[in-house]
Nucleic acid binder design. Structure first.
Lengths: 236, 236
DNA sequence: TCCTAAAGGAGAACACTGTTCATGTCAAGT
DNA sequence: ACTTGACATGAACAGTGTTCTCCTTTAGGA
């Protein structure tokens, strides 16, 4: 009983090792030259394998790239959650805590621009839509919003500025309201989504090189922007 | 004198026709299947030409793609300016006028998602950095900002809410201050850049499919967002 | 313990791709 | 009339993703 179990797991263990090794090499290629340059044959060469051998592990180039996209989502989510945990433990204002996750996301993105592109860049034709991706995506969003929820629960969230929210908009953001915080006024949900938009936008514009000749110190602009956004949300 | 001139221009005319025809076919391919699927041989097939013949007109695939990127920039800039002109002639509030250019950009992007991706998506490895691109880019930004400048000059721009701008940030955005409006307070320049960030972000997130299962009515969210951003800038 | 079935890997092959080169073919200009 | 240049071709080369057949090794039940 014990022998076959360990035997089978030995099989699966080497298979799993091989799989992660392939992914590591492929990720290195993407990190260095971008997703467009990912070549099945070249990762096979790096691993001293025949190209056809990779098909035992992935259904093809698109499947490999999808796995990399998924891994990028997971990595970003982990990083965001780590930052949120760290922020929760800090002795700091809510406004300061809020900035930690955006900062971590930017740092992650600047270190891995191509992997950021896998998530927030042009969708690859092979694609990504699979529902596996929605879960880490939600984890990132939840991490970013956690300080806001904490401030609200502690009664430290400014509620004065009340933007009117139309019925159409209320319905439009209903999934977010349910998923993230059902006891939050809908204006705050809208503000959180706008904060998300701005954070993703400011990071993407920097990572994709659009601040060239425009903003000389992207870090300073980023810091100011997330500060203003936090203020907008009502964090103090 | 007249004959060689017309003859030479006849030569150049047919060459120009051929060039635009190639670009048109290539753009159609990109519009349908994305930049990654752009194949020199397939556009040659569509034109009933040998693949090598295209090298008389473009230095290769990268050059053709660069031309398409440039064309996308130009098209977006033209559209944005058209919307700005239209807005300037409208009988409407400054806040309402401000929304016209972002709306036009969103409409353009939704109609040509892949061409939007050429501009604001993952940079292509072959690439785009050439300084030709900075000019239409500035035209888009200028078009978006024109209603703000008009409101300012008419003395209808709210100046009350004064966010502090650090010296570092002031220096960081200096190129924009000089390029777009030197007589505008730096807080407004920062607000304009943040507006730019949010507009590009909200359009990209929608076009790249990130509102799936998140925002059911992207149009409603977009309208609310550009309204709030305009309010933030101080338009009334 | 042996034997069968499955899994992993290799290599050849096919249909693509971008790019280069030698060749041919016309029209323009001296 | 002749030469030069531009245009177009077809073959070729190196690279790609993918599929197929074949071989070896291993696992697990008879």
């Amino acid at each position: 009983m014990a022998t076959p179990r360990t035997a089978r797991s030995a099989r699966e263990r080497v298979r799993e090792e091989m799989t992660t090794e392939i992914l590591a090499v492929a990720r290195a290629h993407v990190a260095k030259e971008g997703a467009a340059a990912l070549s099945l044959r070249s990762v096979a060469r790096d691993l001293e394998l025949a190209p056809s051998a990779l098909y035992r592990y992935f259904d093809g180039r698109d499947a490999l790239l999808s796995a990399l996209i998924m891994a990028a989502y997971e990595a970003l989510a982990t990083e965001a959650e780590r930052a949120a945990d760290h922020a929760a433990r800090r002795e700091a204002s809510d406004a300061e805590r809020w900035r930690e996750v955006p900062r971590a996301m930017r740092k992650w993105a600047l270190g891995r621009p191509h992997e950021w592109g896998l998530i927030f860049g042009t969708p690859v034709p092979g694609y990504e839509a699979p529902p596996d991706t929605v879960e880490p995506y939600a984890r990132v969003a939840a991490a970013m919003v956690r300080p806001v929820v904490a401030a609200k629960e502690a009664g430290r969230l400014r509620m004065d500025q009340s933007r009117r929210v139309s019925d159409a908009l209320r319905d439009a953001v209903a999934p977010v309201t349910e998923a993230l915080f059902s006891d939050m006024p809908v204006e705050k949900v809208v503000l959180a989504l706008q904060a998300w938009t701005t954070v993703i936008g400011v990071i993407s514009l920097e990572v994709f090189g659009h601040w060239r000749n425009t903003i000389l110190d992207p870090g300073a602009f980023f810091e100011a922007t997330i500060r203003d956004v936090g203020e907008e949300i009502g964090l103090i």
